[in-house]
Amino acid sequence: MAEATQTKKSTHWPRTAKGNGKKACTVEGCKRPYRAKNYCFFHYKQWRQGDLPHSRYRTCSKAECRLKVLKGGLCEKHYAETYKKDAAA
């Protein structure tokens, strides 16, 4: 009886750079090859988490607020503050 040979399968996707390493990350000062959205794997992860200035989703229009927009260009907190005042007056 023939002995079956087993091949070891990779359990994780390899972090490979696109563009054969010729294109660099678009973040100033970063020389890593890009992976997605013109960011290296490190900055792409930050982008997904909303830590980079160009965030993944629309952010609140109030100064220094980086929360996700709910309605009218404002986050839930600022929307409630703005329109509660108008409704109470």
Rank of each mutant, 00 (worst) to 15 (best):
K71E: 14
K18T: 11
E76I: 02
E76N: 13
R56N: 03
L70R: 15
G73M: 03
K8A: 10
P14D: 14
K84M: 12
G21F: 07
K68N: 09
P14Q: 15
C65S: 07
Y57K: 03
G29E: 07
F42C: 03
G21Y: 07
W13C: 02
H12T: 10
H54Y: 06
K23F: 12
K22T: 09
K22A: 08
R32N: 09
K45P: 00
T7H: 13
K9G: 03
W47C: 03
A2M: 04
D51L: 13
T5L: 12
G29K: 08
A2K: 07
C30V: 00
R56W: 02
A4C: 05
G50I: 12
A80W: 05
Q6F: 14
T11P: 00
V69G: 02
M1Y: 01
K22C: 01
K37T: 00
H43C: 01
C40H: 00
F42A: 15
L70F: 15
F41M: 02
R66M: 08
K77F: 11
K8N: 05
M1R: 02
A88I: 15
S55K: 11
T5E: 10
T26D: 10
R66W: 08
Y34E: 07
F41W: 09
K68L: 06
H43P: 00
H43M: 02
K84Q: 15
Y44A: 05
C75H: 06
P14I: 06
R56S: 04
M1D: 02
C30F: 01
L74D: 01
T16Q: 08
E28Y: 05
